[in-house]
Design a protein around this nucleic acid. Structure first.
Lengths: 362, 362
DNA sequence: GGGTCGGTGGCAAGCGGTTGCCAATTGTTG
DNA sequence: CAACAATTGGCAACCGCTTGCCACCGACCC
C-alpha cells in the first residue's frame, strides 16, 4: 500500500529554500508589483523546483474568497443542461474559477439542502431553472451573489432567452403553414419559462388572429409528452407548441404509435433545441436557446457581481432565441389529431425545404 | 446595493453565547461522545439559535480532509455521462461528500490542467474515461486516491462494464440474424474501451466462426459515425458494431441519407444505451452499460479508499452489461452497404419483436 | 482518608496562507 | 549633506476549526 506522497511544500518551505520570509513568497505570487522583480523571479524559480502549489483552501480562509462558484441545475440527466454546463464551465475557467455542479433532482427541497452545504464554500451561485420559490432565492441572494437563469426574480439578476420572440417566430411559421389554432402543452407550474411562453403564445396568436389553447401541465419529460398525446386526441388540433423538446419528442412518439402522423396530421414545435432534436424522426422543429452562451453569460455576470459590480440592471439579460425549422412541422391538412384515413401526401422534400437554420453542434 | 449579511457566526460566537470554550463547541459537533450529553445539547441549541453553520474550509485546513471529490469526464456535452454523473453524485451525497465536476473536453492536456487545480482541494478523484496516459494517471494516483472508470490501469482501482460479455451477446444476436461478417467502427485510440471491444469482437467472432473487420478510428460522435459511413460503403458489410451510440446514430443517419436502409440493408449495434438511443428511427440496438450503477460504484470505492481501505483487489470491479435489442438490427438480406434495389420487405413488426429488453429511463 | 481513574472541559499550538504595519535601504531633492 | 519619500522585505496577528495534552472533579476502592 503505497503511502500518499509526503505533504506538498508550503510557502514556508519555499521561503526557507529561497532565503526570504514567507510573507514575501506569498506576495510574490499574489501581489505582482509588491515585491522586487528579481526577488519574485528567484522565488518563483525555487517554488517551481520544489513543486510548490498554493493551497486554495488555505488561501480562502483569510481572504474569504474561494474562487469557486456553484452551478445548480434541476436535473443532470436532462440533456438541456449539457451545453449550459459547458458554457458556464468555460466562463468560470477563463476567470480562474472552479465550478461546483449541483443536481437538484427537480426538487426544491433538495435544492435548498444542497445549497445549504455549498453556500459557505462558494463566491457565488448560478441557479439554472431553480425550483425554489422566489423568496427562497432572494434569501440565498442575501448571503451570496446569485444569478438566475430562465427565470425572473425581483432584485436578483437574471439571464433569459427571448421567449416572446421565439414564440412569435414559431407562431408565424405555423401561421404561414396554414394552421389557425395552436395548442400549448404546458410544463411544470413552478417554471417561470412556462408562464412566459404561454403568455407570449396568447399574445402572438391574438395579433395574428389565430387561436391558442392550453393543455396540461405535464412533466417536462418524454413521458410527460406521451401523456399529453392522450389528452390531445380529445382536443383535436393541427398544431402543437410543447413546453420543451423532451415533451415534444414524447408527444410525437405517442402520436405516431397511435397512428397520427407528424407533420401530416399535426405539426409539433418544441423548445430548447436539445441534442436529440435533430436525431428523431421526423426531426424536431424547435425554438433554439443559445444554451452555451447562456451558461457563459450567467457566470460572467455572476463574477462581475462578486467583484462588486452593482446588480447589472433590474432588467434581465435577454439572449436571442431562434426558430430551427425541421421536419415536424408542415402544411395544415386536417384539423384533427385522430388516426389518418386519407393517403394523399404532401411531398416530403417540400415540407422540409426550410430545414435546419442552425445546425446541431457536435 | 444591499451589503452581504454580516459574517456568519463562528464557534467562538457559539462558545461565548453558551458559556463554554470553543474547543468544546468543536467537539460537540465533531466528536459525539467526547462531551457531556447535556452540554452538547445546550451547545447545539445555542448554535441553532445563532444560525451557526460549520465552515467546511476552515475545517479542511487542520484535518486535511475537504469532503469533496472530483469527477472528471471527457465531455460534458456527451449524454453518455449524464447518468454516470447522477449516480456518482448520489453516492457522494449519501456519504456527505460534495462533487466537483470537471470537463476535460476530450483533451488529455486540459484534463491534467484541471486536475492540477483540483488536486489539492479534493479527497479523491474519479476519472471517467480519462484521456490521459496510464503513467499520468498513476502519477495522480500517488497524490490522491483515484478510481478510474471504463479503463484498466495497473495499480489503480477501476470500475468497468463487462465489455466482452456485451460484445459476445451482440455477436450472438447478429449471428442468429444470419450475419457472418461484422464490421467494427473504432473509437478514440486513447480509449481503453475501444481496444477491449475490438479484442472481444475478434474473439467472439472467432469462436462463433464469423468474421470481424475493423474500420477507423473515428471521432466518438455523431459526426464521426457519419464519416464512417463513407468508408463503410467501400467495404460492404451486413452488420456493424459501433464504438458507441453516438457513432451508431451518425452512421445510420448518413447511411439512410445515402439510400442504404437500416436494418434492411445493414444492421447496426451501438454501445452505451444513451438517452437518444431509443428515440432515433430506427431505434438503436445497443449494449447497455449500467451507467448509474457505475457512477455509484466508482464513488463508493473511492470513498472506501479515502478511509484507508487497501486498493480493493488488483482486479477491476466489473459491472454487467446487457444487450438491448431494438429496431436497428434485423435479418441479413444482402451483403452490401450499397443503395437498395430490391423492395421485398421483411415485415417490420417481426424485425422488432424483441424490442427493448430494458426500457430507457425517463 | 488517600490514591486511582474515567469523564469533561479548557489551553494553546497548529493548518497554510494573507496583510497591516513597521523598519531598513536606497534614491531624491533643496 | 540633511531631510524626506519611495521601495522592499519581515514580523506577527489573524481566518475558523481541530486536537494533543493537561487539569480538575467526583466516584470508587482499599
Amino acid at each position: 500500500m503505497a503511502e500518499r506522497a509526503a505533504k506538498s511544500p508550503t510557502i514556508y518551505d519555499v521561503a526557507r529554500a529561497a532565503g526570504v520570509a514567507s510573507s514575501t513568497v506569498s506576495r510574490a505570487f499574489a501581489r505582482p508589483g509588491r515585491v522586487n522583480a528579481e526577488t519574485a523571479e528567484h522565488i518563483r524559480k525555487v517554488a517551481a523546483e520544489l513543486g510548490y502549489r498554493a493551497n486554495p483552501l488555505a488561501r480562502a480562509l483569510p481572504t474569504g474568497r474561494t474562487s469557486m462558484i456553484s452551478l445548480v441545475i434541476a436535473d443532470v440527466t436532462n440533456p438541456f443542461y449539457n451545453e449550459i454546463v459547458r458554457g458556464a464551465q468555460a466562463a468560470a475557467l477563463e476567470a480562474g474559477y472552479t465550478t461546483l455542479l449541483t443536481d437538484a433532482q427537480e426538487s426544491g427541497a433538495r435544492e435548498r439542502e444542497a445549497l445549504e452545504r455549498a453556500l459557505t464554500m462558494v463566491d457565488g451561485i448560478v441557479l439554472a431553472t431553480s425550483r425554489m420559490s422566489d423568496s427562497a432565492i432572494r434569501m440565498i441572494a442575501k448571503q451570496r451573489p446569485v444569478v438566475v437563469m430562465n427565470r425572473a426574480v425581483t432584485d436578483v439578476p437574471s439571464v433569459v432567452t427571448d421567449n416572446p420572440r421565439g414564440v412569435r417566430r414559431a407562431v408565424e411559421h405555423l401561421g404561414e403553414l396554414g394552421h389557425d389554432r395552436i395548442t400549448y402543452l404546458a410544463g411544470p407550474e413552478a417554471s417561470w419559462a412556462d408562464g412566459t411562453r404561454w403568455r407570449a403564445l396568447r399574445e402572438a396568436t391574438h395579433e395574428l388572429e389565430l387561436h391558442a389553447h392550453r393543455l396540461g401541465p405535464y412533466e417536462p419529460t418524454v413521458a410527460g409528452g406521451a401523456a399529453a398525446a392522450a389528452d390531445l386526441m380529445r382536443h383535436p388540433t393541427s398544431a402543437v407548441l410543447a413546453y420543451n423538446d423532451l415533451m415534444a419528442i414524447g408527444l410525437i412518439r405517442a402520436l405516431t404509435a397511435a397512428g397520427v402522423r407528424v407533420p401530416d396530421d399535426v405539426s409539433v414545435v418544441g423548445f430548447d433545441n436539445i441534442f436529440a432534436a435533430e436525431l428523431v424522426t421526423p426531426a424536431l422543429t424547435t425554438v433554439a436557446a443559445p444554451l452555451h452562451a447562456m451558461g457563459q453569460a450567467a457566470v460572467r455576470n455572476l463574477l462581475a457581481l462578486t467583484r462588486g459590480a452593482r446588480p447589472t440592471t433590474q432588467a434581465p439579460v435577454v439572449l436571442p432565441s431562434q426558430l430551427v425549422v425541421r421536419g415536424s412541422t408542415g402544411h395544415r391538412r386536417r384539423n384533427r389529431t385522430s388516426p389518418a384515413s386519407g393517403t394523399t401526401k404532401v411531398s416530403g422534400p417540400a415540407l422540409m425545404a426550410a430545414t435546419s437554420t442552425v445546425a446541431g453542434s457536435r
